[in-house]
Simulated assay, not measured.
Amino acid sequence: MILGNHALQRGYQPRELTEWFATAFVDGFPWVMPANVIGMSQYADGGIVGTKPYAAGGAYLNRMSDHCRGCEFDPKKRVGADACPFTAGYWAFLEHNADRLRDNPRMRQPLNSLARLSDVDAVIDQEKRRLDF
């Protein structure tokens, strides 16, 4: 979930990611990776396997896993030196893909929340710089 979410937010190539997962993990069988990575993790099939992108911010990751334990980033913050890359990446992903996701009924609430963010431009700028390291 964590790796797939990061890859989705950062725009990794689904085919290359599928190949990497298939070779990097002992249970990454070639027959299961396309459905899991392309369909579920990366939403690259347009919704055939998953009904919405499996993207999440830091607060969700913190609630659903132990991934954030001891992390220097604040999962509730979108902007700043201590802003969670997953939280900011989530909103940047939604902004970048809003037109493509607008007709998906399961994305209505997140896209409405995106429209209410007062700092979305700062989030987008921050995330562009994060990608340029």
Rank of each mutant, 00 (worst) to 15 (best):
P34S: 05
M1L: 09
L61F: 15
D45H: 01
L61E: 02
R106I: 02
D66H: 09
Y60G: 01
K52A: 14
A92W: 03
L131E: 12
F21K: 02
E72Q: 13
D99K: 15
Y54W: 08
R10F: 11
C68P: 11
G58L: 07
M40P: 00
D125L: 11
V49I: 14
D45A: 09
M64W: 03
S41K: 15
L117V: 05
A24C: 04
A44K: 05
K128I: 08
C71M: 09
S118P: 04
D74Q: 10
D103P: 01
R108N: 06
L8A: 11
L114D: 07
S118T: 13
G46S: 12
H96P: 00
D66E: 08
Y90A: 02
F25N: 06
M33D: 05
M33Q: 14
V32L: 15
V26S: 14
L111M: 03
N62M: 07
Q13C: 07
S41I: 01
A59I: 11
V123G: 06
P105S: 05
Y12L: 13
N104Y: 08
R106W: 08
Y90P: 08
A83N: 00
A98W: 00
A7D: 07
Q109N: 08
S118V: 09
F29H: 14
R108W: 06
F21H: 00
F73G: 04
S41P: 00
M64V: 13
H96A: 15
A98H: 13
P34A: 02
W91G: 02
D99T: 10
G11C: 04
R63N: 10
G89L: 06
A55V: 15
G4S: 07
L111Y: 05
E95Q: 14
L94W: 00
N112G: 01
G70L: 08
R63I: 07
F93T: 00
M1R: 12
H67R: 04
G39Y: 04
A56C: 08
A22H: 04
R63H: 15
V120M: 13
G50S: 15
P34G: 05
R63F: 10
A44M: 08
Q42L: 14
A55Y: 05
L17M: 12
N62F: 07
W31E: 14
Q42S: 03
M1W: 09
A7P: 06
D132Q: 15
R78G: 00
W91S: 01
E127Y: 04
C84F: 01
K52L: 11
V26A: 11
N5P: 03
S113L: 14
G70M: 03
A59S: 12
K52Y: 06
